[in-house]
Design a binder for these strands. Structure first.
Lengths: 189, 189
DNA sequence: CTAAAACATTGACAAATGATAAAAAATCAC
DNA sequence: GTGATTTTTTATCATTTGTCAATGTTTTAG
């Protein structure tokens, strides 16, 4: 599947669609291989990525040295190490391509410029923060009161793409459980 | 402890502080008793609350009928059922006062008005979404790779006020564990 | 102040998940 | 295509957390 940045804005921000060319010109294309590192923990994240095709993840290394996946994004979604990007401070997480991916990215400076100069991008930024909020919200709810098995079933029902496109290893990490537990959960169904 | 809305804005939004009186006039005072309900699940949340003194929580009822606390706020913080408030759709959660509290609240209409009319409030709204993001971020991280005991210790170190001001019942609910487990965790220290 | 209700603690046991190890299966690099 | 590497599955056992029940403690309503 392949999507475009123009369509993304045209479909969602009809009020200020005359500003689309102005906004889109600041994005640069980038192709990355499967498993390619886009941001190292400890570095400042300078880019916000739009996914044309493929998938990205943000992750950190836990106390036991295991990679733990905090967020995953597919086509038509944006991803960054948001805290680092917004504040231009060192990131506590990595960004990796999960699959080979085509991206469009914008630098922090151009991002700021567009925020101050265009209504479209300001609306987009608020919308992005809201979407991020909703995403984190359901994720916290699933952790608060669902067992590992129920969290897996929640993804199967509500986020099927994640189950289909992530390896067991990545999926287990995203669910906050071990690979072995996930394997058992899947076997029991 | 008691704080004021004027100080909140004056301390954080120095760029546009001439707009503070314009913004503050739309907030109305409200006193609520301990355990008082401010928003019922299924209703549309019409208010954003600033806490002058006391504390509020947002919670939902899980599959087993247990109250589960998603978020807690103290003095000098804002709280709402944000999804419901932003989209003016039915809330999936309740808002309760934990302690007797003094609040200042703004209606959705006045909120929208201030967003469109003042730089201060637009800046504030983005800041609020960012703060919310950071809060959800650490919460997800603690769920992903920490045990119940480690999550409790995390709160002790980084959010001591929560441990001090919440009942065991509320704290256990916020941590996503049973009261009994929390009681045992505390006893073992 | 007192009785009732809510909350907190403790114990015994059950269920879920993690740790470790080993084997099977899939994927990758050349 | 083949051997090496990584991922997935399976099994056993240990640990954590939940469930249920009983009891002690604190808070609340009148």
């Amino acid at each position: 599947m392949k999507v475009s940045l123009e369509h993304f804005f045209a479909n969602r921000f009809t009020d200020a669609d005359n500003e689309i060319p102005e906004v889109v010109q600041y994005f640069k294309p980038l192709k990355v291989a499967k498993d390619e590192l886009l941001l190292e923990s400890g570095m400042v994240c300078h880019s916000l990525y739009f996914i044309v095709s493929g998938s990205l993840k943000t992750s950190f290394i836990d106390a036991k040295g295991q990679e733990t996946i905090r967020h995953v994004a597919f086509e038509n979604q944006f991803l960054s190490s948001l805290h680092s990007f917004i504040k231009q401070t060192a990131s506590t997480e990595f960004i990796y391509a999960i699959e080979a991916s085509e991206l469009q990215f914008i630098s922090y400076n151009d991002f700021q410029k567009l925020i101050s100069e265009t209504t479209l991008f300001r609306d987009f930024y608020i919308k992005m923060l809201e979407t991020t909020y909703l995403n984190n919200h359901w994720r916290i709810e699933t952790f608060l009161r669902l067992s590992a098995k129920e969290r897996y079933e929640y993804l199967l029902t509500h986020k099927k793409e994640m189950v289909q496109r992530l390896s067991n290893k990545n999926l287990a990490s995203y669910l906050g459980i071990t690979q072995e537990s996930l394997s058992r959960i899947k076997a029991k169904k």
